[in-house]
Nucleic acid binder design. Structure first.
Lengths: 109, 109
DNA sequence: TTTGTATATTGCAATATTACGATAAATATT
DNA sequence: AATATTTATCGTAATATTGCAATATACAAA
């Protein structure tokens, strides 16, 4: 095993899990928080901001990109990265919805 | 490897990553969404709602519990589970903060 | 006390993830 | 063209995660 039985859950549940999994790593959190704190998009040099080797950072950036969390546009020799606001908003709304639902529940624990 | 180099990132980044990782699985998403849609807390029978074997569900519940996403109180023979509102709120606020910061940025991609 | 029911733990096999050296590809500079 | 710079890909070693059968534990009911 080690294999998640995705076929047993619905499409949306699998998508939500994938999206969350894409951010759920300290290096990828660090990338997201770095991009959030920079005034604008950042061209290149994310590699130098992280304490990991270049291929490792490249791999993390690829994961964030393919999950739609960040966007990257080629800028000559370097690549300009920024956060995808829509995806971040989707995640916020997801937890906001849960919060609103449970705040109306009768709690017992 | 396969080992995340947690020591290279700060405490908060590691905590955020762990929390997100704890929900980032279809089965655990399904558990969270089930608890969210139930009027009150649910005693037992989460196992029967999921298409996985009992030990597997128990393991997922343990992960959610130790991450603080759900709470469980023993109710005689069964256990009464419910979502931890504070943790869900923390996650909402996390993405809300990112959203607010990036909405003020000068985008270029 | 015996039996039944609900949940947890252990142990293990299979797959997934993380990290990085080596190398490739693509553009920039000289 | 030759060299430098930036990012991507490949291959691989090490660890982590997932899932479940078997079994244990804990309480309830008979």
């Amino acid at each position: 095993m080690g294999t998640t039985k995705s076929d047993l859950f619905n499409k949306k549940q699998n998508e939500t899990a994938s999206l969350l999994k894409a951010i759920a790593h300290p290096a990828r959190i660090a990338i997201v928080e770095y991009l959030m704190n920079v005034e604008s998009c950042i061209c290149g040099d994310i590699v130098n901001k992280l304490p990991l080797a270049q291929p490792t950072v490249s791999q993390h950036l690829k994961e964030l990109k393919s999950a739609g969390i960040i966007q990257g546009s080629i800028e000559g020799n370097t690549i300009c990265y920024c956060l995808n606001e829509k995806t971040i908003q989707k995640l916020k709304v997801y937890f906001e919805t849960i919060e609103n639902k449970i705040s109306k529940q009768n709690k017992c624990c």
